[in-house]
Computed example of a mutant assay.
Amino acid sequence: MRLLGLIRKETGQILRDPSSIAIAFLMPVILLLLFGYGVSLNAREIPIAVVADAPDAQTAGLFAAFRQSRYFDIREETDLAGARLALRQRKIQAIIHAPADFSTKLLNPQHQAPVQLIVNGVDANQARLIEGYVTAAWQGWMAARAKQQGLDFKLPVSLSARVWFNPELRSRDYLVPGLIAVIMTLIGALLTALVMAREWERGTLEALMVTPLRLNELLLGKLIPYFVLGMGGMGLSVVMALWLFDVPLRGSLWVLILTAAIFLSAALGMGLLISITARNQFVASLLAIITTFLPAFMLSGFIFDIGSMPGWLQVLTHVIAARYFVVILHTVFLAGDVWRVIIPNTLAMLALAMFFLGISRRRIRKSLE
């Protein structure tokens, strides 16, 4: 009964605080809409300029291959100097330049016909994408040209590509599941970081401790309402992922729920530890963002590949629970129940949850004795 009374008290506090409801339910909607519709790792309609020093049927055929590609927005320039100026002004992202002797060398089987590609390398990932798309476009044009002439067009290597788990190569299918980990981190850590700090500021924590409440009951009474709130935010995020963004769920729903509960326990433990340490709501909220939300966003593999990070930073990611949950989310949504991936990552999250909750319990006892 004591525990239920404290849960009712904390639930009433949540209902009286619109910001908690907004963080739990409104924020996931906003983030999912922004990342689902506004953020894309795929390059489409890239503005590039085509320049032919001596325009003719051959250069027109080459440039037509780029116009037919969905990846490019072709803009014609009369000279290379104008195209270079447009590249410096960020009006275009690349230049395809056919020199004056292009057609002559193309029609002479004993010569190679060079085509110059100039790419804006400020964004290295975008530059690599553009280079790959250009290569595919000119190879397609060469193959079609050889077929029209009744010739065999053979490259030294024939690549047969098959994409697993995300055959349509939609970045949305990758971003939306990973975003669930970031959302649950923010809900669990940020809201819980304010729980004990609020009691410290109001001077009511000591009053709670002199009641018949046991320490475990106090912690459970504080955490359970926010656990329910976090799982509700997770459920809303999953519903939006499946029905609004059409992200497949190839694994089991119960595996998703179980692993989400373990991850949320770790996030609650981190938030509770911050709340006990800070004793000030403003400081606690800042610490929660810096130590939980930003690492979950930047170092979990949600956006940036962990394998591409420096070695010391890769080691640091092992203490970030979101790293393991992002892997589980991508696996369950896109690949299915791959137990060799799910089990070790779940155990790592469980260890972190036990660690943070255990440290939080010890610190609050020492602080009040």
Results as ranks from 00 to 15, higher is better:
7 I>N: 09
184 M>T: 14
253 L>F: 14
355 F>V: 14
135 T>M: 14
222 K>E: 06
17 D>V: 06
211 T>Y: 04
228 V>I: 15
329 L>E: 02
84 R>T: 06
163 V>W: 14
12 G>A: 09
253 L>I: 08
134 V>I: 06
297 F>I: 12
203 G>V: 05
113 A>H: 05
41 L>S: 09
177 P>A: 00
363 R>P: 02
178 G>E: 00
284 A>V: 11
93 Q>W: 02
33 L>P: 06
284 A>M: 08
167 P>A: 13
315 V>L: 13
298 M>W: 15
69 S>M: 11
146 A>N: 13
201 E>A: 05
96 I>W: 01
75 R>I: 12
344 P>S: 07
131 E>I: 06
20 S>D: 04
315 V>R: 11
19 S>M: 10
259 T>R: 02
195 V>T: 15
21 I>H: 03
38 G>D: 07
153 F>V: 05
34 L>M: 15
214 R>I: 07
322 A>P: 08
350 L>M: 12
321 A>V: 09
153 F>Q: 13
63 F>R: 08
17 D>L: 02
355 F>R: 05
2 R>M: 07
26 L>I: 15
97 H>G: 08
16 R>T: 12
160 S>R: 14
74 I>G: 10
192 T>G: 05
328 I>E: 01
334 L>Q: 12
94 A>N: 11
83 A>M: 11
197 A>G: 02
337 D>C: 10
129 L>C: 04
31 L>I: 13
3 L>P: 03
29 V>H: 03
155 L>P: 09
217 E>C: 10
91 K>S: 12
55 P>C: 13
45 E>A: 14
126 Q>D: 07
185 T>S: 11
162 R>G: 11
219 L>W: 00
122 V>I: 13
264 L>V: 15
322 A>C: 12
136 A>D: 09
271 G>M: 07
237 S>I: 01
274 I>Y: 06
223 L>N: 03
166 N>I: 01
267 A>N: 08
24 A>E: 02
10 E>W: 00
319 V>K: 03
44 R>F: 10
177 P>W: 01
118 I>P: 01
23 I>R: 06
63 F>A: 04
123 D>A: 13
88 R>D: 02
169 L>T: 11
129 L>T: 15
198 R>L: 05
278 A>Q: 10
275 S>P: 01
208 L>V: 01
19 S>A: 14
335 A>Q: 14
73 D>V: 03
285 S>D: 04
277 T>V: 11
61 G>N: 14
244 L>I: 15
351 A>F: 09
156 P>T: 11
30 I>Y: 08
324 Y>V: 01
104 T>Y: 03
65 A>M: 09
256 L>H: 09
1 M>L: 10
334 L>D: 06
325 F>H: 15
162 R>I: 11
188 G>T: 09
61 G>E: 09
57 A>C: 04
91 K>F: 12
195 V>C: 08
129 L>S: 09
139 Q>D: 09
231 M>K: 04
26 L>A: 15
283 V>M: 15
154 K>T: 13
35 F>V: 04
73 D>R: 12
12 G>Y: 04
90 R>F: 03
206 E>Q: 08
282 F>I: 12
106 L>W: 00
50 V>F: 00
14 I>E: 01
